[in-house]
């Protein structure tokens, strides 16, 4: 779909963003992911409204998966908070890269608050692809439209997954829960273009179950810090090599 370059009003730019969200590949990715997360929330004993609110407030699939599985299985709160926070670090550089695209001459800080909260991997990828083709004065509204459209899809499919998990035969309920790890595994691998990201993926996959089976406290945090630092170290050594 070609990006519409001009809009007659802010409202029309918002609507244009909503339409872009619904025709994006991320419609399917987010739909499938949130069916999985909704099913997970159901199986860990949360309510459907809690699930919907977590999508609106947290708006980050990996953080929601960690939050639900950590709280639901009774992990210490500090461990859950640290694990959620560590996955959120990737949002920082995304916000840093996105805001300069949105900011114009008359932009106030409060205009940037909503796009900042709405920043997620999917919205970020779509915004960076579509925003450069349009006038600066419409970018914030368009970007909000994209993100709110995707968030609407996520909330709706979260409910779908939640109630499907409640009424489905065990095999299909298992299949829904399987959507989350398999779609995250593949989308993380797809996004991991640099060697350091691929190594982090492999180390994290290997370390976390190992540490969990050895009953190491804060297993997710340690697999992240150790696996990520190891990957980063190898990347630095390779760069330093002639």
């Amino acid at each position: 779909m070609a990006a519409p370059r001009t809009f007659s009003s802010t409202g029309e730019a918002l609507l244009g963003g909503l339409k872009a969200a619904l025709s994006s590949i991320f419609f399917f990715v987010i739909g499938g992911t949130y069916i999985g997360i909704g099913a997970l929330a159901h199986d860990f004993g949360f309510s459907a409204w809690w699930m919907a609110l977590s999508t609106v407030l947290v708006w980050a699939g990996p953080a929601q998966v960690i939050l639900i599985s950590a709280l639901g299985s009774g992990s210490p709160l500090i461990e859950a908070a640290i694990a959620v926070s560590l996955t959120g670090i990737r949002l920082l550089p995304m916000v840093v890269a996105l805001l300069p695209l949105l900011r114009g001459e008359g932009t106030r800080l409060r205009d940037l608050l909503l796009p900042t909260h709405l920043t997620s991997v999917s919205m970020w990828v779509e915004s960076l692809r579509l925003l450069p083709g349009m006038l600066r004065e419409h970018r914030i509204a368009f970007c909000n439209g994209v993100a709110l459209g995707l968030m609407g899809v996520a909330v709706a499919f979260g409910f779908v997954g939640f109630y499907l998990a409640a009424g489905l035969p065990p095999l299909f309920a298992g299949g829904l829960l399987f959507l989350t790890p398999v779609s995250f595994l593949i989308s993380t691998a797809r996004n991991a273009r640099a060697m350091v990201d691929r190594l982090s993926l492999v180390f994290g996959l290997a370390l976390a179950p190992l540490l969990a089976m050895l009953h190491v406290q804060l297993d997710l945090m340690w697999s992240g810090v150790v696996g990520g630092t190891l990957a980063y170290g190898i990347h630095r050594l390779r760069e330093a090599a002639p």
Partner: peptide, 18 residues
Amino acid sequence: VWARAVATAILAGVIAKL
């Protein structure tokens, strides 16, 4: 780059545990 590596490893850990 380091922060992204740690975040990716954590996400991978979640996937493997699931």
